[in-house]
C-alpha cells in the first residue's frame, strides 16, 4: 500500500526520524521492515516539542514495531548533526514539555475544529477530514 522495497533498503540499520500519523516523532535505528512499511525500530526515543515555548524533551521508549499505515514520513538522520536542535530551543524535563505539548495540541485541534466548521458551512470538506496533524 505504501512503499517499494528499494526505498527502505538503503535506510536499513540507519538512525531514522519517523513521523507518525498522530504527530509522534520517533528516533531509532531501523532494523527490519516489509513492503507495507511496517518498521522495527531499535533504541527508540520519542522527541516531544512545545513549539510555542521553544522547548523539547527526549523520552526513552525502547523497541518499537510500527504499523506501516501510521507512517507519514521517514528521514535519515545526519550523524554529523546528530541530536542538533536549532536555537532557541532548549531541553527541558519530560513532564514540563509534555504538559505544554498537550496544551498546544489541544489549542491546535480546537482551531482546526472551528476552521472545519466554518468551511463546512460553505460546503467544503476539510483537507484532512478529521485526521490528526503531525
Amino acid at each position: 500500500m505504501f512503499t517499494t522495497a528499494a526505498q527502505l533498503l538503503d535506510l536499513t540499520d540507519k538512525k531514522l526520524l519517523v513521523i507518525l500519523r498522530d504527530g509522534r516523532k520517533l528516533i531509532g535505528v531501523l532494523r527490519s521492515w516489509d513492503q507495507f512499511a511496517n518498521l522495527v525500530l531499535q533504541d527508540t526515543i520519542e522527541r516531544v516539542y512545545a513549539e510555542n515555548e521553544k522547548v523539547f524533551a527526549s523520552v526513552p521508549r525502547g523497541l518499537y514495531l510500527v504499523r506501516g499505515e501510521n507512517v507519514l514520513m521517514l528521514g535519515e538522520i545526519d550523524l554529523d548533526k546528530d541530536d542538533y536542535v536549532p536555537e532557541p530551543y532548549r531541553e527541558e524535563s519530560t513532564n514540563v514539555v509534555d504538559a505544554l505539548h498537550r496544551k498546544e495540541i489541544k489549542e491546535q485541534k480546537d482551531k482546526e475544529k472551528s476552521t472545519r466548521a466554518k468551511l463546512q458551512a460553505f460546503g467544503f470538506e476539510g483537507e484532512l477530514a478529521g485526521e490528526v496533524m503531525f
Binding site: 523539547f56 514520513m73 528521514g75 536549532p86 530551543y89
Partner: peptide, 28 residues
C-alpha cells in the same frame, strides 16, 4: 507519488525544528 528528497532544508526551521538533523526524507 511518494517522494524521496535529498539534502533537505526546512523553510521555516524555527517553527518546525524536528527535521533539522535530517539529511534525506521519504514522504508519503
Amino acid at each position: 507519488l511518494n517522494i524521496k528528497l535529498d539534502d533537505i532544508s526546512v523553510v521555516e526551521e524555527v517553527k518546525y525544528p524536528h527535521l533539522s538533523s535530517v539529511k534525506n526524507v521519504f514522504i508519503r
